[in-house]
Design a protein around this nucleic acid. Structure first.
Lengths: 414, 414
DNA sequence: CTCTATTTTTTCGAGCCTCGAAAAAATACT
DNA sequence: AGTATTTTTTCGAGGCTCGAAAAAATAGAG
């Protein structure tokens, strides 16, 4: 049951609030912080002077823009880049990349690597992840002690506690407790996150006007993934990362899905499904392991050029996505959608059927008002989201320990 | 953006916490409250003495059971029934009922009434609701001034702010701002709630062991409704009451639904759909306005007796519910389900096909572990939930004003 | 160049709140 | 009747936020 608020929680929570305000606003003055948090100037003054003393914040020059004002100029507060650093690890199909990010959010080092994730042994996969992290940590240019957290993003299902990958399309192996493995190895707190959830977080940071409290990020790729933000918070399943939009049922007993079941949205809208339909292989044809981006582009070009099986394949994809979104919108009400990933570049081929389908569902009553945006490049988005998530953890758990306690006040996505 | 915690919020929140603890536990001692809330004995002592002084709590005799213990006996705290009262109004198809409930949760008065909701004019419908409330308020036995809140539950879609009914199957009229109407009329704060959400709240109070943080209540009735509790909180859409499980798409372009669209779960599993299939009228047959409980029982009896169209109708209903739940479980992970309503009595006919369908979905991987419970009588459940919701509002907004501020700490379903 | 108006930031005392320790209260056991 | 035990209250200490006032830092006016 919920727990009372202790007296010392108060300061911790307000510290977290101030740090969050600075991270969001970039270089706010104390006065601005007081306004956004609703706390008094005295309190902000006390907290920020603590935080500066601890090296978490630094004073920077007044925000250059409006310095024509009369009185004492505002002095901007910003995050001290050297206060800490985090490491992001993004593991996707045949690709592994890490980045070191300072406390202010700047990338200070990175490394990328191709692997054959589908055929690697479990130990080899884990080994590669550990090794690439170790190489970054051993980088002489880097103060190892400053790495306060590692966040690993992976395509597939993770558990709610962000400790393990439960299942992933990029490897046949399951239940890999990456968080424990990394923590045992490096003694740095680690979490495992779902890639689409990180996309959603990144979108929110990139465009907070459009992606604020309620929106959907859909990854159109070999498979179909989703990151969902509802009421300002990342929506996850009760046990897993959840939000397996791609495996909602579009056609009972329909096309064969990569997951072994039938009729999932993904079995119509994933790259392999579009490929299969475009090649007219039939819905029972075994999903191929991978379709190159070049092949998908060729398919899209063909579909644009003439009415044929390629165009029909995209139409079917749009229909599946549309009915899927319609069902989703029946549950959560319509919200803005971001289509992310290589196939988002072919959204023009998908959109008509999608809109037609969605218009026939409960959530689609005002389907014209549902807006779609596209972003073909998912990797930078995942990495950004991962970085923000890791930094937010540092903000809250390390620099304001105990503040994450309960209540969503400090738990908001960003 | 989120707001800092003021110093005076602290007491308010902890007051709310204590009240909630008493409401949940029934007759806890101060020591028990200290344990469940995590606050110190001194704090609990101070707060409870305030609350007793204000007439919100009362001291009752020690909890009779374990009074064989050694030391000073615990003195139980309980809600003062006279501290306030709330009124519930439940509006369902052709039926209107109100109840007055004291602060401790006991029904002190009630009234029920049959109406022809489908054919009534908008004003007549509103008029009946206002009139029945007025009759209760004018009851000489009742201290009118003590009614602190009115909660109206209605089948259909309400808005997130709980101010208005947006759409309902029980009436052709839409967008009725019942909350404003009642507040203008009686100057008592009012809310409008979705019936299935209230069912979920009631289930949680009735059986907190089974229905704790994550569960689903599904109303099997003329239509199909759902109340969903996730992570301890009632799940609603972003704009509406949401959770329109019945209008998730089961079969694109499938059977005609009462909502005018095609292929919704309800178009296979609602009473009218089962009836239509049992009578072999075809999927395009216009949904009938109402099927009597007696007719539905006859259908169920026939289905149990022989393999025929009746049995097939229930099979189809189970299949639709199963695939729908499967899609839902893809998003939120599996959770216990309560089947509520008259047709829950025919769940034996529905279950086999339901389990078979769910086993073919992503969420159904462990379909055997998904447990179903049935409760044929929805009305008492709706009223109970409504009462608890209204009382919780009083707990938080009236007796601990400002405490509902932000953070879910105090917002939990109960 | 000095003075004034203006705005931001810090300082300081007041008022709450929670906590821990100790005291008081109320009972069962010996 | 006295002792052990458990619950509840009391009381002082320590923290936190707030408002008001003071201090700091600048632009504009004369």
């Amino acid at each position: 049951m919920s727990v009372g608020i202790r007296h010392d929680d108060l300061r911790r929570r307000n510290r977290a609030m101030v740090i969050a305000a600075v991270r969001r606003a970039g270089q706010p003055s104390r006065t601005e912080i007081a306004a956004t948090t609703g706390l008094s100037h005295s309190t902000i003054s006390a907290i920020s002077s603590d935080l500066i003393g601890e090296g978490i914040l630094t004073e920077s020059k007044p925000s250059e823009a409006g310095s024509l004002k009369r009185g004492r100029p505002q002095v901007g507060l910003s995050l001290n880049p050297e206060a800490a650093a985090v490491m992001t690890v993004v593991l996707s199909l045949n690709f592994l990349s890490v980045a070191v990010i300072d406390y202010a959010g700047q990338v200070v080092a990175e490394e990328q690597r191709r692997l054959d994730t589908l055929t690697m042994s479990r130990d080899a996969l884990i080994g590669e992840c550990v090794a690439i992290v170790r190489r970054r940590l051993e980088d002489p240019d880097l103060d190892v002690r400053s790495i306060a957290r590692i966040a690993l993003a992976i395509q597939g299902i993770t558990d709610t506690r962000a400790r393990a990958m439960l299942w992933s399309p990029i490897t046949p192996h399951t239940d890999i407790a990456f968080a424990d493995i990394l923590e045992d190895e490096f003694a740095i707190p680690a979490t495992v996150e779902n890639d689409c959830n990180m996309m959603a977080i990144a979108l929110r940071w990139r465009d907070p006007d459009r992606y604020r409290d309620d929106f959907i990020a859909i990854l159109l790729s070999h498979g179909i993934g989703m990151g969902l933000v509802l009421k300002g918070e990342l929506f996850t399943g009760t046990h897993s990362s959840g939000g397996e939009f791609g495996h909602m049922i579009h056609q009972p007993n329909g096309a064969l899905c990569r997951c072994g079941r039938r009729g999932c949205v993904e079995a119509y809208a994933g790259n392999y499904a579009i490929w299969r339909n475009a090649r007219q292989l039939g819905e029972d044809a075994e999903p191929v392991a991978d379709v190159s981006d070049a092949d998908m582009r060729a398919l899209a070009t063909a579909a644009r050029e003439r009415d044929g099986p390629e165009r029909e394949a995209y139409r079917k994809a749009g229909e599946a996505l549309g009915y899927g979104l319609g069902s989703l919108f029946a549950l959560i009400d319509p919200a803005p959608v971001a289509m992310v990933g290589a196939s988002a570049a072919a959204f023009d081929l998908i959109e008509p059927a999608l809109r037609k389908a969605i218009a026939q569902t409960a959530g689609g009553q005002h389907s014209k008002s549902i807006s779609f945006d596209t972003e073909p490049n998912e990797l930078p988005l995942i990495r950004e989201g991962c970085a923000m998530r890791a930094l937010t953890f540092v903000d809250q758990e390390i620099f304001a320990p105990g503040a994450q306690a309960r209540g969503s006040a400090g738990k908001s996505v960003a």
